[in-house]
Amino acid sequence: MNIFRLAGDMTHLASVLVLLLKIHTIKSCAGVSLKTQELYVIVFATRYLDIFTSFVSIYNSLMKLIFLGSSFSIVWYMRYHKAVHRTYDREQDTFRHWFLMLPCILLALLIHEKFTFFEVMWTFSLYLEAVAILPQLVLLQRTRNIDNLTGQYIFLLGGYRGFYILNWIYRYFTEPHYVHWITWISGLVQTLLYADFFYYYFLSWKNNKKLQLPA
């Protein structure tokens, strides 16, 4: 474990906490895409299939449980908690899951490191995570009304991806045989998707203004 990986995991954890804070205490999920959250449930459920069969560290297992549990509870809140559900922008959040999932399934079947069930599911989760933020970014574009917590949530999520890239560069130079093109390319694509958002986030921060995306 290097400092970049730890920073990445902590930013990821912080992003989830910010979102749970918004949902749990303010009882609002305005501006949050249920589609993206459901895709994250699928991402973590397919990636952490090995949670009971392969043990890396207590840290890893604990974090897997946290990410699984938090993503499930966020979706539960948005779907079934009356007060929270009322604030959901259902009409604006129209992205189709299958539109993103189908290409990822096909790609995972075609391009993977090993053709085993676990490995293909793992690879699918990498591809899907790369694009899972898209419904959220589309929703932001549509509502344009971004509150601080939603902005911070997406900022932290993008930060997590940025730190993981630094982690891969660090590992590449310090560990022999550490070459994982599939992880790197899908991770890079994922981080690039945040570039536009980051640009406007920094602009609003620099000018001390409320975050607003252009139409």
């Binding site: 995991d9 890396v56 890893n60 897997k64 490995e119 045989h177 070459v179 992880t183």
Partner: peptide, 10 residues
């Protein structure tokens, strides 16, 4: 061994 160490990430 190569694909083992990719799975130690989250």
């Amino acid at each position: 061994e190569e694909s083992e160490n990719a799975h130690d990430e989250l």
